[in-house]
Amino acid sequence: MDGVSFDVRPAELFGLLGPNGSGKTTLFRILSTLMVPNAGRALVVGRDTAKEPACVRRQIGVVFQAQSVDQKLTAYENLWHQGHLYGLRGAALQRRITEILARVGLADRVKELVETFSGGMARRVELAKGLLHNPTVLLLDEPTTGLDPGARRDLWAYLKVLRDEERISVLVTTHLMEEAERCDRLAILNEGKLVALGTPLELRQEIGGDVILLEAIGDPMALAERIQSRYNVAASVLGRHVRFEMENGHRVITTVVEAFPGEIQAVSVSKPTLEDVFIHRTGHRFWNQANAEALNSER
């Protein structure tokens, strides 16, 4: 990690976006007090995660990517156990468990073993675990991994409820652009560095106009150079594609195709996405080939 610095505001839904290996999980471990940073520091509610881990731990609720609920316990027992770890006990704990399980929609499965639950339900127990002690900050590491689209939607809707009604600061790591779009603000990480920080809208707007992607028939490098000199823009080569940004893209493409006859296989023009922000800042695709394959096999 190098030069990563950002603040998360109270009651904000903050996203950490980055491809696999970008340092999201390392950062997550530092914030959740599991790792001590070599240099630099992380503060949660004004407390240093390395120096005062006990204080930080009481303030944060953590939902890990890997399942942490105990399969051999019921939903209730999992939360009973979790409550004890946070010093909650007795009737107050019982009330809180009933309340939180109702909030995540598991009121009718309280006494069932978690091993009988679907992935989405187990994740809701996970979320209930993280929220049981009323944390001020909720940290979630890739919380939608392995969930079906419906369960993903539910989870994100619930995170917004937490932000709006309970005023909890929510920090989510993700490698999915469409999830990042839903955050209030975003930090984009690449190879341990912060490449962009802002609201999704701000980030997209920093790209001048539209994104134009040309599939070259011949040498894409040569095509990129000629486009740079002709339009005076920065063009980058991504595999067989040449990519550049210009306003009024729909008009530009007709002139481009006419200017380079027989050299362009396909043309596309699009409004900038967060992926374009990533390419714009790093000069390469969010998914390199290996990553993309890993993702496909994951699906």
Partner: peptide, 14 residues
Amino acid sequence: KEGFLLSVMVAPVP
């Protein structure tokens, strides 16, 4: 391995 230990380690438990 199951991830359970992580959730104990981030709790304010000595």
